[in-house]
Amino acid sequence: MYIRCAFFNGRVKPGREAEFTAYVREKLVPLWTRFPGAQEVRVMRQEDSDSDAQRYEMVLAIRYPSHAAIEQALASPVRAESREVTGGLMEMFEGSIFHTVFRADDFPLPTD
């Protein structure tokens, strides 16, 4: 499987935390869950870190069955729409976003 992540490196502007959270849930999640080929959409918000060097306000992780499925999603109209809507989110955010793709393997936990 493959997981494409968007790392939001930075912080929400002070006083806009609730607005940021609502914007993600109400405007962006409905788009992200419509990406063709997506098998899972996970939005993670940083609670704690063992390093002050980096702050990831949010990480978006979307799981796909193949690299070809990612390419299809990136070329889709819903992805273009989500990029446009993300512009509104950036008005509440101080930082940058970068994307990366991971190849992932699942391992079952021991059952003893």
Rank of each mutant, 00 (worst) to 15 (best):
G87N: 07
P36D: 01
L31F: 06
A69P: 15
A18R: 05
Q72G: 11
S66I: 09
D50N: 09
R45W: 08
V29M: 05
I70D: 07
Q39K: 12
Q46F: 02
Y64Q: 11
M44A: 09
A22P: 01
S49H: 02
R45T: 15
E19F: 03
R25S: 06
P14L: 13
G37L: 06
P65G: 05
A61I: 03
V29K: 06
V78G: 05
L74R: 08
M90A: 11
S82I: 03
R25F: 04
Q54F: 15
E84Q: 12
F35E: 00
E26N: 10
I62W: 02
A68W: 14
T86P: 04
V24I: 08
E17P: 01
G15W: 01
R83M: 12
A69G: 12
R34F: 04
M58A: 07
A61D: 00
G37I: 01
Y64E: 11
E71D: 14
E19S: 10
T21K: 05
M44T: 02
R45E: 13
V43I: 12
L89I: 04
I62L: 05
V41K: 04
G88L: 01
F20D: 06
M92P: 02
E91H: 03
R34V: 10
A68G: 15
K27G: 13
T86Y: 00
R45I: 15
K27W: 14
E17Y: 12
M92Q: 03
E81N: 05
S66T: 14
G15S: 04
P36F: 05
S82N: 04
S49F: 05
V78D: 06
A18L: 07
F20N: 04
Q46K: 07
F20T: 01
H67M: 12
Y64I: 12
T86R: 12
R79L: 15
V43G: 07
L74G: 15
A75G: 11
Y23R: 00
R16G: 02
V59P: 04
R45H: 11
R83Q: 14
Q54I: 15
E71H: 06
K27T: 12
E17A: 06
G37W: 02
M44C: 10
G37A: 04
E17S: 06
E40A: 08
R42F: 08
F35A: 01
F20I: 00
Y64C: 09
P77G: 12
M44D: 14
P14M: 10
M90S: 08
Q72Y: 10
V78S: 06
A53N: 09
A22S: 07
A80D: 05
L74V: 03
K27L: 15
S51D: 08
I62G: 07
A38K: 00
A22E: 09
R25Y: 09
A80H: 12
G15K: 06
E47Q: 12
L28M: 02
Y64D: 09
E57T: 14
G87H: 06
G88Q: 03
I70T: 04
M58K: 12
Q72I: 15
E71N: 11
E81P: 09
A53K: 07
S76L: 06
R45A: 14
P77H: 15
Q72H: 11
T33Q: 15
L89M: 05
Q39S: 03
E71C: 09
E71M: 14
V29S: 03
T21G: 04
V78I: 13
E47M: 11
F20V: 01
L28S: 02
I62S: 02
F20P: 13
K27Y: 14
V41D: 05
M58W: 00
A75V: 00
Y56G: 03
A53V: 12
L31R: 00
